[in-house]
């Protein structure tokens, strides 16, 4: 397992389970789990998003309370159907102040999308899984007038990342 910087392994499994509901994996079409989104989130919480550490810990507590009636140890140990049921209930009440679970789920959704579509340098979007899904060629220095013509299949343009651009300008960071 890749090292963690903020979440503990149990918490990471739970976040990974939530992420796999936000962007599910399918045969031949990987999702948030394969893209390593949980590591983007963990990294973010240890750094740029440190202010949200409390929100995550409160959210995980609220989630645990929703899991308790089912007798499972954690959210990650529930079957997928029950997991989805809990998230659907949370989504339905995002603005109820004492139901923090809804807000927490909204935060996690946002972070899952960031980790899935952000540059791989941030720890998610492994093998540019997110970009391949939607046909986005990534960090291009520019596009030629030919590529700008209508009808061009952008999937024929090789995907580039920020790391590729550093290599291109000859700066090793």
């Amino acid at each position: 397992m890749r090292p963690l910087f903020f979440l503990n392994p149990d918490e990471a499994r739970i976040i990974d389970a939530i992420a796999s509901h936000v962007i599910p994996s399918e045969p031949g079409s990987p999702g948030a789990r394969e893209a390593g989104v949980v590591h983007y989130i963990d990294d973010t919480l240890a750094g740029f998003g440190r202010d949200l550490q409390g929100a995550y810990r409160s959210g995980l507590e609220a989630l645990q309370a929703a899991v308790a009636p089912y007798g499972a140890r954690t959210f990650a140990d529930l079957d997928e159907e029950r997991q989805r049921g809990i998230l659907e209930a949370a989504e339905a009440s995002p603005d109820v102040p004492d139901a923090f679970l809804g807000q927490f789920f909204a935060i996690v959704c946002e972070h899952v999308v960031q980790g899935f579509f952000g540059d791989p340098a941030y720890g998610g979007n492994v093998d540019e899984i997110g970009w391949r899904l939607v046909g986005y060629p990534g960090a291009q220095w520019g596009f030629s007038a030919d590529q700008m013509r209508p009808g061009v299949d952008a999937r024929s343009i090789p995907i580039l990342t920020v790391a590729d651009l550093y290599a291109r300008v000859g700066t090793s960071a």
Binding site: Q114, G118, D119
Partner: peptide
């Protein structure tokens, strides 16, 4: 010089 990063500029 390398600003092609949606998380850095748009999101953050």
């Amino acid at each position: 010089e390398i600003k092609h990063d949606e998380l850095r500029y748009y999101q953050r």
